[in-house]
């Protein structure tokens, strides 16, 4: 978030929060919304565009599929086990390996995607956070330059914030 100060508004009601988000957007403020759970209304009003995590999943899957088949094929050619007249590279049998590796690498890549896009781990730095946001309160933290905190606090209060706090530094 931009600015030297953070103004945190704590809300009990989601409709108030949504009003505050819309107002902050309209004013062109730099904000961050906190909620105890995911909710489609918050999502629509904050980040309606699709998440790029899917690219991690896709590339992980492609890599896993190629890797799984390559492993099975290369190992079979490197140490050929000749049984009757069966093919050394037995694709139907290797489908299982390719399939499992696709899922394995894709899932691990998705996990990396979560870490990357959610900016995790970030244990110490919780700008604008309040422990009540994992309980029953919603929050919005707005970054502001010196002198603008009063106007922003007023906007949040007007939208129905239970309390508004101005914090130093980002």
């Amino acid at each position: 978030m931009r600015g030297s100060k953070v103004i945190v508004g704590v809300f009990s009601y989601m409709d108030d929060l949504v009003r505050a988000i819309r107002k902050a957007k309209k004013e062109g403020l730099d904000y961050r919304v906190f909620s105890p759970m995911a909710h489609p209304v918050i999502e629509e009003n904050t980040m309606p565009q699709a998440s790029s995590v899917r690219l991690f999943t896709l590339f992980g899957g492609i890599l896993g599929c190629i890797g799984g088949f390559a492993l099975a094929i290369w190992c079979s050619l490197d140490w050929p086990l000749r049984v009757s007249a069966k093919a050394i590279v037995s694709v139907p049998a290797f489908v299982v390996i390719g399939y499992e590796c696709t899922i394995l690498i894709s899932a691990l890549a998705t996990f990396l995607g979560i870490l990357h896009f959610c900016r995790l781990p970030d244990i110490l730095r919780k700008v604008g956070y309040d422990p009540r946001f994992t309980d029953d309160k919603f929050g919005i933290a707005v970054g502001a330059e010196d002198g603008k905190e009063e106007a922003i606090s007023k906007i949040l209060s007007e939208c129905g914030a239970d309390e508004v706090e101005v914090r130093e530094g980002l």
Partner: peptide, 23 residues
């Protein structure tokens, strides 16, 4: 991991969760 539940985290998290379920 320092989870705060901000809107960006929830967005990517839910998307990833859906992929996990799909996988």
């Amino acid at each position: 991991l320092g989870w705060t539940g901000n809107h960006s985290q929830w967005k990517h998290y839910m998307s990833a969760y859906l992929f996990f379920a799909g996988l």
